[in-house]
Design a protein around this nucleic acid. Sequence first.
DNA 1: ACATTAGGTATGATATATCATACCTGATGT
DNA 2: ACATCAGGTATGATATATCATACCTAATGT
Lengths: 76, 76
Amino acid sequence: MKDEEYLILIGKNISRIRKEQGLTIKELGYRCDMEKTNLIPIEKGRINVTVGTLIKISKALTIDLKELFISDVSSS
Amino acid sequence: MKDEEYLILIGKNISRIRKEQGLTIKELGYRCDMEKTNLIPIEKGRINVTVGTLIKISKALTIDLKELFISDVSSS
DNA sequence: ACATTAGGTATGATATATCATACCTGATGT
DNA sequence: ACATCAGGTATGATATATCATACCTAATGT
């Protein structure tokens, strides 16, 4: 798996879980004190996000950090 | 688990796996094209490492990225 | 005594993640 | 027609991850 693919996977997981919880990007931003100008490219896998940021996001989504790295959510 | 603790955990996992493979920090640096001035604080959990860097490191150690997040290696 | 190696720190430079603001589009609602 | 909201892009500022170099200590080897 290529680096970019990993970042895209992480972004998709964030986006999927956020939507599953019925949250908008703005609401997620409130919860983890982050800007959408940063969250949107993270969900797209366009930027090389830091672990600290992923920790903030996973806390805001009340999930374990590991869940952001799982690769096949029933091959959606 | 606090943010800093997560980074320390990741660093300890890197350090442990590197040593298990008999690699020095310099050798790991060769493999993932990184400086020890960056690798050492990462192993200490002192800097907010990026996912891209963790991907490079996990490739150099021929492990899956997820392995860097496991929390209890027989509670060492 | 000297050289080498491993881990480690200090510091200045460079790249880039993140913030802050502004603006755009399409959808939804009144 | 207008307002609002969601996702999205552009851009300049700020913080900081990473690099590059230099230096230190302790251990090991000759």
